[in-house]
């Protein structure tokens, strides 16, 4: 598939996660679950079947005791900017790259459940609904009206809380503005983070916090060599964490998933 069509847009949303601040508490995951109407299975220890759009991976430097260190890599959808793998393989255009915002969408009612995208995603950011979503009696009351729960048989993934963008834009329109202010549209995970490790914003706005952060010397992206140009950046001053960000088969390294 060729390059995404370039459109003159002032918006391109991205995320920066400071891994030196992240303590792996998982508040981002829970905020995401709550915001995006996830159901919970009775056995969530089976991670192959556990759906978590924002998953916090625990990694270790692999050094023996007492030089061991662990760190956490929260992994939302990377919203790849170039040759978006899932968009490339989807036969029914159920997932699409929005050239106006850079957000990779997922249209559940259009998805036929072929799961090509799940296989194509190098970040394991896509999940398939093998079961009907079930909420115990009374629990459906906490469903967010802005977000549709997903039915059995479709793939799903992080949407950068796209519905929040819609709301922010509506609000700006009512107030007679065409552009959003920095911080007006943030994802649920960024809003929740207790250490403020997650920064979300418009990368094309030079005044935004994120535009400055992605230029930091410790910034990197996951699997950069694949050329997918993720819009999720990570920051770390620890070289072993940065090395893990570009993991590949055949390279001998001690560290890895903990």
């Amino acid at each position: 598939m060729s390059e995404h069509q370039e459109v003159a847009s002032k918006e391109k949303y991205g995320m920066v996660i400071d891994l030196d601040k992240c303590t792996g508490c998982g508040a981002c995951t829970v905020a995401c679950l709550s915001e995006n109407n996830h159901y919970v299975r009775e056995d969530e220890s089976d991670k192959l079947h556990s759906v978590t759009w924002m998953k916090v991976y625990k990694v270790t430097n692999g050094e023996p005791f007492p030089n061991t260190k662990v760190a956490f890599i929260p992994r939302p959808c990377m919203h790849c900017d170039h040759h978006t793998p899932c968009v490339s393989v989807c036969p029914v255009m159920a997932t699409d790259y929005n050239p106006l915002t850079g957000i990779v969408s997922q249209i559940y009612t259009r998805c036929i459940g072929c799961r090509y995208c799940v296989g194509a995603c190098p970040y394991h950011a896509r999940y398939f609904n093998w079961w009907d979503p079930v909420w115990p009696e009374g629990m459906h009351k906490l469903l967010n009206p802005d977000m549709s729960p997903r039915m059995r048989g479709v793939a799903e993934k992080c949407s950068f809380c796209n519905h929040r963008l819609q709301k922010a834009k509506d609000k700006a329109y009512v107030e007679g503005r065409k552009e959003l202010k920095d911080g007006e549209y943030v994802t649920a995970c960024a809003e929740a983070c207790p250490t403020r490790a997650i920064t979300f914003g418009n990368m094309k706005d030079p005044e935004s916090a994120i535009a400055k952060l992605i230029k930091s010397p410790g910034a990197f992206r996951l699997l950069e060599k694949l050329g997918t140009q993720p819009k999720v950046y990570y920051l770390s001053n620890e070289s072993w964490i940065r090395e893990l960000g570009d993991n590949a088969l055949g390279r001998k390294k001690r560290g890895g998933l903990a």
Binding site: N37, D132, W135, P145, P149, R150, M151, G153
Partner: peptide, 9 residues
């Protein structure tokens, strides 16, 4: 398919 509940708006 039980379909997903539609959250009341």
């Amino acid at each position: 398919d039980l379909w997903a509940p539609e959250p009341a708006k």
